[in-house]
Amino acid sequence: MSGTRRSYNEEYKKQTVKYIQEQTKTVAELALELDIPAKTLHQWLGKYRSFQSEPIATPDKVRELERQLKERDQQVADLTEEMAILKKAVHIFSNPVYRRSSLRVPSGEDVQRLSGITERLLQMENSEAQPPSRPQSVTA
Rank of each mutant, 00 (worst) to 15 (best):
T4Q: 07
R5F: 02
R5G: 04
S7C: 14
N9E: 10
N9M: 08
N9C: 10
E10F: 01
Y12E: 06
Y12V: 09
K13L: 05
K14V: 14
K14T: 02
I20Q: 00
Q21S: 08
T26D: 03
A31I: 01
L32C: 12
L34M: 10
D35V: 05
I36D: 02
P37W: 00
A38L: 01
A38V: 01
Q43A: 11
Q43P: 04
Y48R: 02
K61E: 15
E64Q: 11
L65W: 09
E66H: 07
Q68G: 15
R72E: 15
Q74M: 05
A77S: 15
A77V: 01
E81H: 09
M83V: 08
L86C: 12
K87E: 15
K88M: 09
H91C: 11
H91N: 11
H91L: 11
I92N: 09
F93C: 09
S94Y: 03
S102N: 07
L103W: 07
R104V: 13
R104T: 12
P106W: 00
P106V: 00
T118F: 01
E119R: 02
R120L: 05
R120N: 05
M124W: 03
A129H: 07
A129F: 10
P131M: 04
P132W: 01
P132T: 08
Q136Y: 10
Q136I: 15
A140N: 13
